[in-house]
Amino acid sequence: MKITKQEVQHVAELARLEIDEADVDKFARTLADILEHAESLSRVDTADVPSTAHAVEISNAFRQDVVAKHLENEDALGNAPESEAGSFVVPKVIE
């Protein structure tokens, strides 16, 4: 199993991470180690096995659609790096 520098950079781009050139090799090597270990899964026959995404059986969790007390706007914005007029502020989206 080999992961190229380009693959690391591609996945980093998808995940909105910038990886320093100096660290790319290290990530490529450790990811390859882990994925190589995961190759063992391909030996298991799972043709008729359903996937599990949730370990305990529960059905849909419904609730009444009623107004309840939630965070005040001021509290919801309290940790925002930047806010204005009751809203989150982000850098310019369209250049």
Binding site: L35, A38, L41, S42, V44, T46, V49, P50, S51, T52, A53, A55
Partner: peptide, 14 residues
């Protein structure tokens, strides 16, 4: 090959 396969293995472990 990875996520789906792992989720199926999860069923077998259960």
């Amino acid at each position: 090959a990875y996520y789906k396969k792992a989720s199926q293995i999860r069923t077998l472990i259960q």
